[in-house]
Each structure stands twice: as C-alpha cells, then as structure tokens.
Design a protein around this nucleic acid. Structure first.
Lengths: 147, 147
DNA sequence: CAGCATCCCGATGGATACTG
DNA sequence: CAGTATCCATCGGGATGCTG
C-alpha cells in the first residue's frame, strides 16, 4: 500500500518541537508518573493495532459500523467495538445512533480527532518516505548477524 | 512532565498529508500485507514502551549504555538492550564499541533517527497541547457510563 | 560495564457464539 | 445491524542470575 515515497526529505526539527524534546530529556528519568504521562497514552493509542486505520477510514466521511468493518479489512467486531469506544472516550470520534429498524450507528471524526490526523499523518508521510532506507538497513543488519 | 501546553492549536491537515491519508483510505481493507506494510512497523515502534524515551534521550548527545539506563529511569537492561538493537537494526541509532577495559559502548542518533524526531515531536506537541481536552472527555464519558 | 539467558505473568487480541 | 460475552493463544516485558 501507499507508494507515495518520492525521496527522503529528512526533515529538520522545528523550534517548538525541540522545546518539547528538551523538556522531555531534561525530565531525566523521574519514574513518578510515566503511566499518567499524557504523552504516553496518546502514543499508546497510536501504536495500537487498529486505532490508526479507523481514524484514516473515518477521515473522508462518517461511516457506519459495518462499513468500517469492511473497509478496515480483517478487524473483528470485538476489536472494532473496543477501538471505537476508546476513541469515543478520548473525544476523537463521535457516535450517533439512529433508531431505525434494525438500528444503525454512525461514527464520525470530531474536530479533535481530525486535528490529530495532522501530526499523525506527518508521521505516516515520514514512514512512507523512509521505509526503503529502513528496509535496507534491516537487511544489512541481519546479514552480518549471520556471520 | 512536560507542561508546555499553551492552548489548543487544532492544526489543519496539509496537502501532502491529505494525499497520504487518501491513499490509505482508498486502499480499502486489502488484508494482503498489513504485516509488511511499512507504515505499520514504524508505528509499532513508536508505540513500543521505550523506543520514544530512548530516542529523546539520545537527541541532545550520544550516550553510553548505563547513562541511558539511568536517564530513562526504570527500564531494565533487558528492555534497553532489546530496544537499542531494534533501533540499530532500523538504522535510527548507531552503536560504537570502544575497546577499553572494561569496554564501553556509545549509542548515538543517526541522521535518520534524528529526522524521525521531527514528526514524532510534532505528535508529542499535539498530545501535550490536547491532553487536557482528552482528559476532560474521558471523565465526561466515564461519568455517564455509570448511569 | 554491557550485555545474554531463563522464567514467568499479565495484557493484547483472535475466534466463536449469542442477543436486542 | 450492531453489538456483547466467553474462551484461549500469543507476546510484550519485568525479575533474576550469569558472563566476557
């Protein structure tokens, strides 16, 4: 999927980002929160297997439960429900029930959810741009591990 | 940690990012790769508990094994080794052994690793800016779940 | 100092079956 | 259609102990 890579930009770190990084680095391993750390649970979400796919699937337009399931692919109803609940709880996705018969439910991105796609998307673009480099690096690494 | 939030920017989605998103959404659930998907394993890395902390810790300057362990906090040697190996394999971190006695090893960000911190940092800034909103949303959600 | 090997537990998440 | 409930396999990752 997603063959958009058009070279390796290797973007530089902007000032606000650097400020953020420095403040994290300065924090120097205080184990205090780390579970409470707001950054952590956002990052965890992003890393969770299905979160990203669902956000991306909802970006063009709101969708219903089974539409989502078909679009995302082989996600189980269990995981789809669970992930949607989390996103709803975080205020990234809205859930609207239509009392038709049988009932239908529509999920949509909130403003917050849409705004999250900007930095997440940037990360995706980075990943797409550099995955060839990464793949090559892995092959080289694995090759000399055999020795 | 990291109390830099100065309001909620709610950034908009830029054109290249939108192109990326669309190409993902258009992909419409082909389960073909998904394990091979380059985007997936990059995202997985970011989500892994220690990857981010290590990258951030290495950004200001290269560091040695035990320096890293102290700075990151309560990471075990096992996990530190494992995470560093992955990052080295991906070409994000370089590893240089100095044949002193006892031996010392220095880890440093590569250009690739540093470049990754730009989009990752942007995501961190977003998380930091919006975690109050998210927290509030969660409380509201949990409150009416009780009913 | 900088690891590797082993044991082990809890969480993640898939498969399946049932319901309003 | 849009879930919920249950069971179960896998795996991340912590603790501990041993090396060059």
């Amino acid at each position: 999927m997603t063959r958009l890579h058009s070279g390796n930009p290797l973007p530089e770190i902007s000032d606000p980002v650097r400020a953020m990084l420095d403040s994290m680095a300065a924090w120097t391993g205080a184990p205090e929160d780390e579970a409470q750390c707001p950054v952590r649970d956002v990052l965890d979400r992003v890393g969770q297997k299905w979160t990203l796919l669902i956000l991306v699937a909802l970006e063009p337009s709101p969708k219903r439960f089974s539409q989502l399931q078909r679009q995302v692919g082989d996600i189980s109803k269990r995981m789809l429900t669970q992930t949607l609940r989390q996103l709803e709880r975080d205020g990234m996705v809205s859930r609207q029930v239509f009392p038709t018969k049988p009932p239908s439910v529509e999920y949509a991105l909130t403003d917050l959810g849409r705004s999250a796609l900007a930095p997440i998307g940037a990360l995706l673009v980075w990943a797409d741009s550099n995955h060839e480099t990464i793949r090559a690096s892995r092959e080289a690494f694995d090759a000399e591990e055999v020795s």
